[in-house]
């Protein structure tokens, strides 16, 4: 069974304040991809945290994007390539996108897709809280960048097919 060429993985717990940033952006993205007729080209994966098995979700993809909330990270957001050579963190209950990529590299032994991280700054992560006003504003700021990433991924994929 063939997989969609692009995958967007978002993580976070919707019941813990700004940890809902990832799921909120993913839900919005699903609607937009449908409207744009791009839904078949993307697989959207939501989880509470990034984990080792997500390495398998990168297999046979052209590009992948990890979306997560950040604490003490640049506001409103940072969109940058995943550094596959970054030292793996000592994980608590999650692993970083770089560690997912490292697991992929060691376990799957196949060409690594282009991987980026969209890290949107959050401020409050308490149980039962909704999104903070700041996080809501940061999501609005990040949304055009997310749309652009998807459009560019599709264009790059189309050009590769032509080549």
């Amino acid at each position: 069974m063939s997989v969609a060429p692009f995958v967007v993985l978002a993580c976070g717990n919707p019941s813990r304040g700004d940890d809902a940033i990832g799921p909120a952006l993913l839900a919005r993205l699903a609607t937009w991809l449908d409207e744009e007729g791009l839904a078949d080209a993307f697989e959207l994966i939501e989880d509470f945290q990034f984990q080792i098995e997500h390495a398998l979700d990168l297999k046979d993809r052209c590009a992948a994007l990890f979306i997560d909330a950040g604490e003490h990270t640049p506001a409103p957001f940072a969109l940058c390539p995943v550094d596959a050579h970054a030292p793996p963190s000592h994980s608590t209950h999650a692993i970083s996108p770089a560690a997912v990529l490292a697991v992929y590299h060691r376990v799957v032994k196949a060409p690594v897709p282009t991987c980026d991280t969209l890290c949107v700054c959050g401020e409050s992560f308490e149980l039962g809280d909704g999104l903070s006003p700041a996080a809501a504003a940061y999501i609005e700021a990040a949304w055009p960048a997310l749309q652009s990433w998807c459009r560019e991924a599709v264009c790059a994929g189309t050009e590769n097919e032509k080549a």
Binding site: C11, G12, N13, S15, R16, G17, D18, D19, F48, Q49, D68, A69, G70, E71, H72, T73, S89, H90, S91, T92, H93, A94, S96, T117, C119, G122, F125
Partner: peptide, 14 residues
């Protein structure tokens, strides 16, 4: 399992 289902990039691990 310390039940903190929150995680965020940028937290100091240890």
């Amino acid at each position: 399992c310390l039940s903190c289902a929150t995680h965020a990039l940028g937290k100091m691990p240890l």
